[in-house]
Structure formats: C-alpha cells, structure tokens
Amino acid sequence: MTDSVLHATAEAGRAPRVRFWHDPSFWGLLPSRLLMGFALILPIFIIAAVSVATRGAHGGFAWDFNLAGYRQILFNEGWTGELEFTPQYLLIIVRTFLLAGATTLICLLFAVPVAYFISRQPPGRKAALIYLVTLPFWASMILRVYAWMIILGKDGTLPRLLEYLGLPSGMSLMFNDGATLTAMVYTAMPLMVLPVFASIEKLDGTLIEASHDLYGSRWVTLRRVILPLTAPGIVAGAILVFVPSLGAVLEPSLMGGGKQMMMGTLIQLQFGGGRNWPFGAAIAITLMALVMGFLIFAALRAARREAAL
C-alpha cells in the first residue's frame, strides 16, 4: 500500500503535469473502477436508500423518507400496543457478534500451529500442504455443510464412533450451537490459515535464535518476537473470517436448526415473510456500520501501535 503511494508521488514529481485522461493507467483501471462502482458501491447506496424508504403494504417500498426501519431496531409496539424498548434485535446482533467472534478465535487457535508447521516443511511438501488447505474451496459451500450434517447427524460418522466407544446409541449431535460453530470454523479455516501462513513464512528464523541467545524463554519469544512479527497476517486472517461470519445464514439454519435467529436470517425474514424491506435494509446497513466501526477501530489501534514502535 505505502509502497505504491510512494511510487505514485515519485512518478508525479518526475513527469510534467498531465491531465488524468492522458494517463494510460486511468483508462487501464477504468473497467475495474466501473465494476467496483456498479457492482459494489451502487448496491450499497441502493440499500441505504431503501432503508430510509417507506414500506409497502405487502413488501416492496415507496420512495418516501421514513426512519421507521431504524427506529424499529430499538423500539417496537409491545403486546399492549404501546411503543416500548425491545431488546430482541439487539440480542440477535450480540449473538451474531459472539458467534462470529468465537469462530474467529477457534480458527486462530487452530490456524497458527498449522501455519507454523507448514512453513517449516521442505518446499515441495509445503506446496502440497497449502494445496490441501485450499482444497475444500473447490467444493460448494452448501455441500461442505451437508457433509457435516452427515458426520454429526443421527447414525452419522461421529455418533457411530461414540457408540463404538461405549456411549449411548442413537445420539444426534446436530441442531445446537456447537454444530453451528463446527461448520462455521470448518468453512472459514482456510481463510485464516493462508494469511497467517504468509506472514509466518516471512518470519526470519535468526530473530528467534537471537531472542533465545538473549535468554528469552520460549514463551517470551512467542509473545515478544513471533506474535508481533506475524500480527499483520493474524489480523488479516481474523478480518477475513470475522466479517463473512457475521452474515452467516447457511450454518445457523442447517446445523443449528434455525432455532435462534442470526442477523443473516433476520434480514432474510424481513425481505421475505416479514415483508418489511426498509427494516431489512436498515439492519443490513447497521450491520455494515458496526463492521466498519470495528475495522476502523482495529486499523487505528494498529497504526498507533506501529507509531509507538
């Protein structure tokens, strides 16, 4: 990032002032800019606009400014007909964040040792192992979740194994938070392993030796040398896992039994059965704002820490 910026200023200094349309790179980048604009930025603006529109009687919306969608996140008519504070949607938001956080943490716990192990292999085996890590991506996501349903379900692989070990038979390990978490960790794992691996591999072994030479114990070496140096990869992996996990719909409904809503299912309900598009859009925008806030906070902290070093 910084590299390219430096590069750009250097170039601008060298060449005489040119209009941007004389710059071939502008035209070269135009398709990607248009694609980003139309496929990414514009839809977000549309959702933001819908979130302040007025709901139609049976779904859909009219272009009349209305903040009811946002109000509804916190205040709703109670069973007595009065407007009252309703924590139900906050509860769903908090649950979603907890689940995404747990997924990220578990992924991290598994991914660091795995990445470390892979990075210490000879080159040929390293490539093969990385290939294996990305292998699940070749199958469709719904297929991977169904695979877990077969493993955990009634008469599935795992219950059979437990039965063999003397535990009661006919157990089903499906339809609970553990099952949801298992599938989420499984689907997200490669997203964590790859960036962590990339930064661990760049880790200079001599620095670890130096730490030991200076009487740093294993723990101190890990905490003061290895972790700070691999932090960029860990942060990148954490973001890659955390953010998509917030929008998970498939795992909670298939593995968790859909007994507790997540933000993804809540949004889906509002656009479908609830027939309240503006509210659905308002939740989506809120979710995005929360994620953005979280990322900006993380980025600022990282920048401050870098400045302090």
Binding site: K259, M261, L269, R275
Partner: peptide
C-alpha cells in the same frame, strides 16, 4: 392485512429471537 401480517412476523421474531 399488513397489521395482521406484522403480528405474525412479530410472533415469529420473538419465538426465534
């Protein structure tokens, strides 16, 4: 009616909240 439909959605949301 939209009012009745909202009650249905409210029941469902509270059930799965």
């Amino acid at each position: 009616s939209p009012a009745a439909q909202d009650l249905v959605t409210r029941v469902w949301t509270q059930l799965l909240q």
